[in-house]
């Protein structure tokens, strides 16, 4: 090892080649190029946050936080009356988000309930009941279903669905929260169905075998073993579906009637947060209080959906960790 000869070989060895400045520069430039792109993607995400909040908080310059909840005003006889109204274009503008929040939940909540029943059922069918070959064909169908543009669903609910329910239920308003929530279900069912299917599918087969081995029937296995094991995944899918229902615009804009009623009656017209932004942003004059208050609604929307998604993601990540031993 100490032999001199060995080290003398280094002089004209092909291993001795030093790293080329050119190569090193090129490789680092390429790396920087990709890093810049990655950073830019992140910056866009941050910018969404920044510009939404920057514009939205300007609303608070002239409108108090409480004004977004209610307005106290004297009525004809001089008594103070507390009103919950969204009427920003009035002489005496009212900015209460309460009717919009109610409208949003009155459409999103029933939609989520309907979609949970049907979507989880469909997910169970896909994962546990359907024959595997048929499933290969059905899963893409669900995806196609999920890919239908929401304006199409809004259109169909508007021209067909609304009349259909009008004839059988005779609601007070032809366009109402119920019709919108049926429309929303079309969006959410495929989401819940495919995520439920994922959650059920990720349950190790051993668990099924163990259950069958103990003499359990198929349904006992599904209801007592598989569903409880996939509970967190299924709940995450419902949360994501709910978030999607709250954030959906076109269907509620076309089908919910758009009157900012303060009601718990699902058969009355309501106005959601998303529809308010969509309907009013086009006409509002830039820089007005009304304009900023629409951004403020955006903040509320963003925050609600952000937390719903975050919780869902945390649940899903936990589930992944649990299922990979």
């Amino acid at each position: 090892m100490e032999d001199k000869e060995f080290f003398q070989k280094a002089v004209n060895s092909k291993y001795a080649k030093k790293i080329g400045k050119h190569t090193r520069l090129k490789e680092s430039l390429i790396k920087i190029f990709f890093a810049v792109n990655g950073t830019m993607a992140l910056i866009f995400i941050i910018l969404i946050f920044v510009f939404l909040f920057k514009e939205g908080f300007k609303a608070l310059d002239h409108i108090g936080l409480l004004d977004f909840l209610y307005l106290d005003r004297p009525d004809a006889s001089g008594n103070i009356e507390r009103v919950f109204q969204w009427y920003p274009t009035s002489e005496e503008p009212r900015y209460s988000l309460i009717p919009l929040l109610i409208g949003t939940f009155l459409t999103a909540f029933p939609a989520t309930i309907i979609s949970t029943l049907l979507g989880v059922g469909a997910g169970i069918y896909l994962s546990e009941v359907a024959n595997p070959k048929f499933k290969e064909f059905l899963k893409p169908m669900i995806e196609l279903f999920a890919g239908i543009p929401t304006v199409v669903l809004g259109f169909i609910m508007l021209v067909v669905g609304a009349s259909f329910f009008n004839d059988i239920l005779h609601p007070a308003n032809r366009l109402n929260a119920f019709v919108a929530s049926i429309g929303l279900s079309f969006v959410i069912i495929p989401i819940i169905a495919s995520l439920t299917e994922d959650a059920l599918h990720s349950i190790p087969n051993d668990l099924r075998m163990a259950s069958y081995g103990l003499g359990a029937t198929k349904w006992q296995t599904i209801s007592k073993v598989i569903l409880p094991a996939a509970f967190s995944g299924v709940s995450a899918s419902i949360l994501l579906g709910f978030g999607r229902a709250i954030g959906e615009t076109m269907i509620v804009l076309m089908c919910a009637g758009n009157a900012a009623n303060l009601t718990s009656n699902i058969f009355l017209s309501v106005r959601t947060m998303t529809a308010t932004i969509a309907a009013e942003m086009g006409e509002v004059s830039q820089g007005s209080d009304h304009y900023y208050s629409l951004f403020f609604i955006g903040i509320v929307l963003f925050t609600i959906t952000f937390f719903l998604n975050l919780i869902a993601e945390i649940i899903i990540n936990k589930m992944r960790k649990k299922n990979t031993f």
């Binding site: 993607a41 999607r244 615009t249 959906t305």
Partner: peptide, 24 residues
């Protein structure tokens, strides 16, 4: 953080992107 934000970006309501487009 980047990965989480990207996942969350997918759940932001599309109308909010409209606000972003207008504001930014």
């Amino acid at each position: 953080i980047i990965r989480t934000s990207i996942n969350n970006l997918a759940g932001v309501p599309s109308i909010v992107f409209g606000l972003f487009g207008l504001g930014f």
